[in-house]
Simulated scan of single mutants.
Amino acid sequence: MTAERQSRPDRLMRVLHRVVSGVEWLHRNSRLDAGPPRPVNHDFSLVISRISTEADGVRSLRLTRPDGGALPAWQPGAHLDVLLPSGWKRQYSLCGPPGERRYYRIAVRRLPDGGGGSREIHDELAEGDRIVARGPRNAFPFVAGRSYLFVAGGIGITPILPMVRTAATRGADWRLVYAGRSRASMPFLDELAGLPADRVWIRPDTEFGIPAAGGELLAHAPLGASVYACGPVPMITALRLGLPGSTARGLHWERFSAPPIVDGRAFTVELTRSGRTVEVPADRTALEAIGDVLPDIAYSCRQGFCGTCHVPLLSGQVRRRGRARGDDVAICVDRGQGHIAVDL
């Protein structure tokens, strides 16, 4: 009995030693084969290899590495920060085939009254030009599920299109409602024509007279569906109001713009590293006001959840509207109460 008790631990230790040695060998050799890990949240150069007209005022750009190498992996809902030659930084959803790493595709609607980024892309960039990108990052993650309703408004089809293709590949039960001003203004209708017609509803305002109501959009949801929507604020608001009376069970959305400021109050932000104090009016965000004096400040979603603009809060109290936690503040949506100091 004594010998048996001793031999079992000995055999066990020998087995464990072989297992550990094998794991260490695999770890060393897999790293040698794979090479150093490639970071995904850094600046890198891209070439505009193709520009296509997708709709009235909408161009798509196919972006590749100058050396033709593989691009960082991405998931549906991801976007790129695009650093334009003029210095503008803009965010555009990846809308190419899911899993494609030979190229990225983004689509840009020209906004004559916008900040200038879309005009630069439409009027000044050409095939063969280079831009700098950062990312990809995902502030609009697509979660695995059994059934979905996808709702897109105009250029909001860009993050939705890869989600639709992924849901179809996975065999999920899905429906797509695609709204817009007119068919001529709605990009990628030709690609959607290749999807099952009974799962896709194209709804231009010109053919129905008025924009769709929330209940009208949600009427297409499969039972228990998760709703993924991207579009203008009125469309998102209509979906949020209509959700409780629908068969859907949850809503995930991305807006075209930052959420409106409701009951805003003026406050001041002390930028301790910069030695400045910024007045934030009741109708502006801290991000906008700080951007006037620090134009290079980083931001992405402007909705409080991606974390790009979160900065350490050194003193003061804030009304939290985003997802900043602990001692951070989301300067795109959080508002100070009186005077706050941040590490900027």
Score class of each variant (00 low, 15 high):
residue 214 G to V: 14
residue 248 A to Q: 01
residue 304 G to W: 00
residue 192 L to K: 00
residue 178 Y to V: 05
residue 155 I to H: 02
residue 4 E to K: 14
residue 150 F to L: 06
residue 194 G to H: 09
residue 246 S to C: 04
residue 211 P to Y: 08
residue 207 E to R: 13
residue 262 V to I: 14
residue 173 D to N: 04
residue 240 R to F: 03
residue 142 F to D: 06
residue 109 R to L: 11
residue 151 V to M: 09
residue 324 A to T: 01
residue 172 A to T: 09
residue 195 L to A: 07
residue 196 P to H: 07
residue 166 T to A: 11
residue 160 I to V: 14
residue 280 V to R: 00
residue 122 H to F: 01
residue 217 L to F: 10
residue 22 G to V: 10
residue 140 F to M: 08
residue 260 P to I: 01
residue 103 Y to M: 00
residue 171 G to W: 07
residue 299 Y to G: 02
residue 321 R to S: 10
residue 159 P to M: 05
residue 241 L to Q: 12
residue 37 P to H: 09
residue 313 L to E: 08
residue 35 G to W: 00
residue 324 A to V: 03
residue 115 G to V: 09
residue 134 R to K: 11
residue 150 F to T: 02
residue 316 G to L: 06
residue 47 V to E: 00
residue 78 A to R: 08
residue 115 G to M: 09
residue 327 D to T: 11
residue 338 G to C: 04
residue 273 R to W: 02
residue 6 Q to P: 07
residue 94 L to Y: 05
residue 10 D to N: 12
residue 74 W to R: 03
residue 162 P to A: 10
residue 173 D to C: 03
residue 26 L to F: 07
residue 336 G to T: 01
residue 297 I to W: 12
residue 129 D to F: 13
residue 115 G to Q: 14
residue 190 D to G: 01
residue 30 S to L: 13
residue 283 D to R: 05
residue 127 E to F: 10
residue 56 D to N: 11
residue 33 D to P: 02
residue 124 E to P: 05
residue 17 H to P: 06
residue 150 F to C: 03
residue 94 L to G: 04
residue 310 H to Q: 12
residue 311 V to W: 04
residue 225 A to G: 01
residue 137 R to E: 01
residue 141 P to Y: 02
residue 38 R to H: 06
residue 61 L to K: 08
residue 299 Y to V: 11
residue 6 Q to M: 13
residue 163 M to N: 04
residue 181 R to E: 07
residue 299 Y to Q: 06
residue 214 G to A: 13
residue 11 R to E: 14
residue 161 L to N: 09
residue 291 G to K: 10
residue 180 G to Y: 11
residue 11 R to F: 12
residue 201 W to Y: 06
residue 176 L to R: 03
residue 61 L to Q: 07
residue 76 P to A: 01
residue 100 E to S: 10
residue 302 R to Y: 07
residue 31 R to C: 09
residue 168 A to Q: 14
residue 323 R to F: 04
residue 282 A to I: 03
residue 287 L to Q: 03
residue 117 G to N: 13
residue 130 R to D: 11
residue 332 C to D: 01
residue 221 A to N: 08
residue 77 G to C: 08
residue 282 A to M: 02
residue 40 V to I: 10
residue 230 C to I: 05
residue 235 M to I: 15
residue 135 G to N: 01
residue 307 G to M: 00
residue 48 I to H: 02
residue 241 L to V: 14
residue 33 D to F: 10
residue 106 I to A: 12
residue 2 T to V: 15
residue 220 H to K: 07
